[in-house]
Simulated assay, not measured.
Amino acid sequence: MSATPTDGARRPRRDRRQALIDAAIALMSEGGDADISAAAISRRADVAHGLLFYYFTDKQGLVAAALADVLSRLVHHQSPRADEQTPEQRLDGFVRRHIEFLENHRTLYVRVVVEGVLGDPAVERALREARAEGARQVADIVGLEQPPTPVMQTAVVAWTGFLDRAADEYVERDDLSLDDVVDLVVRAFGVVTGR
C-alpha cells in the first residue's frame, strides 16, 4: 500500500499546485454558500495553507488559475471530433459540446461568469482570453479566412455571446431541447456571418 498525503507523505510540487486548483474548482462549484476562503481551499486540497500563497501569490491568483484550468478543459472538450468532416458538422459539434459543458459545470459558470462573484481583473482577463480563443476555434472550424476581417471577427465574437446566452436559456428552462437550441445557434452563425 502506497503512502498518501494524508498519512504523512508529501505530494510532489506539481500535484500540490494542481490539488489547490482542483479544490478551488470544487468549492466554487458547490454554490453560493460554499466557503471559498484560502483556508477552506487549502483544507480541501489537504495542503499547508502557506502553499496557496507560494504557488499563486494570493487567492485571486489561484481563482484565475482555476478558471484557466476549467476554460482549457472547455476548449479541449469542444474541439472537433474525427467523425465531423464538414464545417457544418464541426460547428454543430462545437455548439453541442459547448452547451453540454456549461450545463455540466453550471454552478461554477453561474457563480463566476453570470454572477461575477469573483470579479477581479485577472478573472475578467481569463474570461476575455477564453472568449477570444473560442472565437478563434470557431473561425478555424468553419474555415474562415485568416486573419478574419474586422467585421467578420466582430460577427464571430458577437455570435459566441449569442451562443452563451442560448446555453443559459437551455439550462434554465425545461421546455427547450438541446437539438433545437443547437440548430438555432448554428443557423444564427450563418445569418451573422453570411456563411
Rank of each mutant, 00 (worst) to 15 (best):
I21F: 00
V112N: 01
F94A: 01
T154G: 15
G31K: 08
T149V: 14
R195H: 08
P5Q: 08
V113E: 04
V75Q: 06
R90V: 04
T193V: 02
E84H: 04
G50N: 07
P12S: 10
F101N: 08
R125K: 12
V151R: 15
T154A: 10
A66E: 01
L27T: 01
E30P: 00
T6L: 07
A122F: 03
R11S: 07
L74I: 03
D140H: 12
M152W: 00
R165H: 13
D46K: 08
D180Q: 15
E145Q: 13
Q85F: 14
V181H: 00
A26W: 01
T6I: 09
R173W: 09
D33N: 10
R96V: 15
H76Q: 13
A167V: 07
R10C: 15
V117N: 05
G50T: 03
K59E: 06
V75G: 06
T149S: 12
P87W: 04
V138R: 00
V110L: 11
R96L: 09
L144T: 01
L62T: 00
V123T: 07
V114C: 12
A19T: 01
R125V: 02
T149G: 01
H98P: 06
A3Y: 15
P80N: 13
E100H: 10
R43D: 10
D174G: 13
P12M: 12
R106C: 06
P121A: 10
D179V: 10
D175Y: 09
S2A: 14
G134M: 08
M1S: 05
R81P: 05
R14P: 03
I21K: 00
P12G: 14
D174L: 10
Y55L: 04
Q146T: 12
G32H: 09
G190F: 10
S42G: 08
L176H: 04
A132N: 02
R187V: 11
V117T: 09
V192W: 06
G119H: 05
E115R: 15
L74C: 05
V114D: 11
Y54L: 07
V192H: 05
D15S: 15
V142L: 15
A34E: 00
M152F: 04
A122L: 09
P87S: 11
L108W: 02
E115V: 10
H49A: 14
R10M: 10
N104P: 09
A39V: 06
A23R: 00
D33K: 15
R187K: 12
D83N: 09
D140Y: 06
A39G: 06
V114P: 11
R43N: 09
E169A: 09
V151W: 15
V171G: 04
F53E: 03
M28L: 14
A64Y: 00
H76P: 08
A139E: 03
D15Q: 09
F94D: 01
D46G: 15
K59P: 01
L62S: 00
G31N: 15
L184N: 11
Y109R: 02
W159M: 07
Q78V: 12
D15C: 11
D69I: 03
D83M: 10
L108P: 00
Q146V: 14
Q137V: 11
G143S: 09
E103G: 13
N104V: 14
A126G: 03
A64I: 02
D168H: 13
L74Q: 02
G194N: 13
